[in-house]
């Protein structure tokens, strides 16, 4: 991005009017303190998810009979304590972070692909295609979607890949509405009309003109969809319908902790704090991105 090797010492920052949209957005985002804090927290949690199990001498499924439901202690390197079977909570929370983050990102990717394609097709085609497609979205919108996820998962088995697909397949609706709205408004812009007049192929118009201009709101929504989907997975796991033993996720850990909250509150509080901090961070980043990418708002 930056070219600072040039010998031109007079090349200072370009005047404000020449800075590109993305450069401006980056500056605005960097000055948003909560959003930057959110970014660093997400990085920290991701590092913990990757490195945590490597640092700790314990494995996620080793049972330490001598130290069941121990509180956080240095003894045996159980920094977060152990659960009712004597398994190390530090490592398990890190594995939970892996699963939860992975689910958040992959489900969002699924929702993103379906939503963008669906919305773009509806918006570009227009007419009865658009009407029909948006009616479908309206109908699905009216459902309490979590129930469909529950059915999908109970019906087709509690496979982790299936959870990805089920959540993603259900959470694309808002995305498709956003993309359709963007496409509809962009379609009427002069530069798209000009491209069409120059007989630019439809696909190239989408790639060169529609996508780059529609991407702002999509990015914002993606950052907000990741925590929402992590929450859905935790919800499912809490009901016992999500990730299955011996694998774990934050939802599973919270469920186990909630059962013993009276005697061993840290079993609930530690994983729940990680979940909450992740939620906070993604939401702050989303807010920051919205302010940065769409300066008209607020």
């Amino acid at each position: 991005m930056t070219i600072d090797t040039a010998p031109l010492e007079t090349a200072t920052e370009p005047p404000k009017s020449q800075r590109s949209y993305w450069q401006n957005a980056r500056r605005r985002f960097k000055s948003h303190k909560a959003a930057m804090a959110g970014v660093w927290m997400i990085v920290a949690i991701a590092l913990y998810a990757i490195l945590g199990p490597l640092i700790s001498p314990n494995a996620m499924d080793t049972i330490n009979f001598q130290m069941r439901t121990s509180g956080p202690t240095l003894e045996g390197a159980h920094w977060f304590g152990t659960d009712s079977l004597g398994r190390d909570l530090f490592v398990r929370t890190a594995y939970g972070a892996r699963i939860s983050l992975m689910i958040g990102i992959l489900t969002t990717a699924v929702a993103l692909s379906i939503g963008v394609v669906f919305g773009a097709v509806a918006g570009l085609r227009g007419g009865w295609v658009d009407t029909t497609m948006m009616r479908i979205v309206d109908i699905l919108y009216a459902l309490p979607l979590i129930f469909f996820i529950i059915i999908l998962v109970t019906v087709f088995g509690r496979n982790i890949m299936l959870i990805f697909i089920a959540i993603g397949a259900v959470e694309w609706l808002t995305m498709s509405r956003i993309v359709r709205g963007q496409t509809l408004s962009l379609k009427q812009k002069e530069f798209v009309e000009a491209a069409r007049a120059m007989a630019v192929p439809r696909f190239t118009i989408v790639r060169r003109h529609i996508i780059p201009n529609a991407i702002g709101p999509v990015i914002v929504f993606v950052t907000l969809l990741v925590p929402a989907n992590i929450m859905v997975e935790s919800f499912m796991s809490f009901l016992g319908l999500g990730v299955q033993e011996p694998m774990t996720s934050w939802g599973v850990l919270i469920k186990e902790g909630a059962a013993e909250v009276e005697i061993h509150p840290w079993l609930l509080i530690l994983p729940a704090s990680f979940l909450a901090v992740t939620m906070f961070s993604f939401n702050f980043v989303g807010d920051g991105l919205r302010d940065a990418l769409d300066p008209k708002e607020r």
């Binding site: 925590p227 929450m231 935790s234 919800f235 809490f238 919270i254 469920k255 902790g257 909630a258 909250v261 009276e262 509150p265 609930l268 729940a272 979940l275 909450a276 901090v277 939620m279 906070f280 939401n283």
Partner: peptide, 22 residues
């Protein structure tokens, strides 16, 4: 209110029972 969104009800509920119930 951000905490209300970030902390799910299945965490809030056990904590409430812990505090009020015990």
């Amino acid at each position: 209110s951000m905490s209300g969104i970030a902390v799910p009800s299945f965490v809030v509920a056990p904590l409430l029972t812990l505090f009020f119930g015990i």
